[in-house]
Amino acid sequence: MAARIILHIGVQKSGTTFLQHVLQANADALVKAGVRYPVSPDWARGKRTVANHEWASYGLLGTEFPWVSQDRASEETSSWQTLLDDVKSRPGTALLSAEALSVIRTPAIHRLLDALGADEVEVVITARNLGWALPSLWQQHIRNGRSVSFERYLTGLAAERERGRDHIETDRSAHLWRAFHLGGLAQRWSDAGATRVSVVTTPGKPPHLLWQRFAEAIDLPSFAEPPTMPTDRAHTGLTAPETLVLSSMNAAIRQTSWSGQNADLIRQAVTARFQSRAKRGNKVAAPPEWQARLAEWAEEDLATLQNTPAHIVGDLEDLRHDPSTEPAAPPTPEEIAQAGAEAALALAAVALQETLIQRNIRRLRHRLTT
């Protein structure tokens, strides 16, 4: 079995999908370098864009993840067993990547480590500063169908954070801060028995810098320039005006009788149209009155992190939030109107395409009956 297992546990919005693309594209070359990244033959099922091990982890830890039902966990039991058999059937080093593992509590960490049964389990955490991560999380929240304002979203996070470390460590619903309070995350895994915890910082750009630091963290500096470096951006976020338009759309969709599947199709069409635009407006940023709070949170987390056994790869300055670098003005009415017009065009394109298909079906039926 693998004597050494490396767990890349995220966190979300820190370049995890990019790293997984690099790992998947270079799986064969990595084996020659002594590290195996298992790629399941059925990884492409569902909506995944890249192979990772999150769904398999549902089969072991199930409802430890707040968004996973018992039925969904049961569906993934065989996926977990396949992955575990793969890891245990081959010697050397195995690398698994699942950003959801950043939210699990200490008992679940013990279950995972016991199940893996390796002599060495190293943990790698990739991280960006809260001033970038929280806006990105909110716009992803909107892309998933919500309509809560950024102000209300941050207010909820603040209230949860103020309940303290015991709440974050034990309450199943406090999963966001369990991941994004980096000091607590590193200490939790270290206390649970990880042989080494590394925190890889990233400023976001250039992406190859993140890979180079990641290669250093997994003790593979010779792979700092992998044979294949994907150029496609797996996740392109929405801008501030686009997010506001989509949020309003989500609120309106809830007043209809559309199925969840149809609502998802509409959102996908609109976001695809947004991402094809040349001029899209400024990125999502926290409201000005929240900027100082985000900077304080980042400083608190950084101080906690520095008191853990975590090995830092990169620059700790990457984890600080500088409010002066954020857009000073909210989206203008004109920018919001332009994004709204693009959303309308996306919906018109869907409607026209459906009309054309229906017309062709009628023509085909007519020919078959004459």
Score class of each variant (00 low, 15 high):
residue 241 P to L: 02
residue 263 A to D: 12
residue 308 T to N: 09
residue 249 M to T: 07
residue 317 E to N: 15
residue 300 E to R: 15
residue 332 T to M: 09
residue 248 S to R: 11
residue 214 F to A: 02
residue 228 T to Y: 05
residue 312 I to V: 08
residue 348 A to C: 08
residue 288 P to E: 05
residue 275 Q to D: 01
residue 235 H to L: 00
residue 293 R to L: 07
residue 351 A to Y: 03
residue 329 A to W: 04
residue 329 A to L: 07
residue 220 L to C: 02
residue 277 R to A: 15
residue 338 Q to A: 10
residue 215 A to H: 05
residue 313 V to G: 12
residue 285 A to P: 05
residue 254 R to K: 05
residue 213 R to P: 04
residue 250 N to D: 02
residue 290 W to A: 11
residue 228 T to L: 10
residue 287 P to N: 07
residue 251 A to S: 09
residue 235 H to S: 00
residue 329 A to T: 06
residue 247 S to N: 00
residue 241 P to Q: 03
residue 351 A to L: 09
residue 230 P to E: 06
residue 291 Q to P: 06
residue 248 S to Y: 01
residue 218 I to C: 01
residue 341 A to L: 12
residue 236 T to R: 05
residue 315 D to A: 12
residue 238 L to N: 02
residue 293 R to Q: 10
residue 326 E to L: 09
residue 331 P to T: 04
residue 273 R to P: 08
residue 339 A to C: 08
residue 303 A to P: 13
residue 232 D to V: 04
residue 223 F to L: 00
residue 240 A to P: 03
residue 276 S to R: 13
residue 218 I to R: 05
residue 312 I to M: 10
residue 215 A to Q: 07
residue 336 I to K: 15
residue 323 P to E: 09
residue 284 V to E: 00
residue 334 E to N: 14
residue 306 Q to S: 12
residue 263 A to P: 04
residue 275 Q to G: 00
residue 262 N to R: 15
residue 346 A to S: 08
residue 220 L to Q: 05
residue 350 V to A: 14
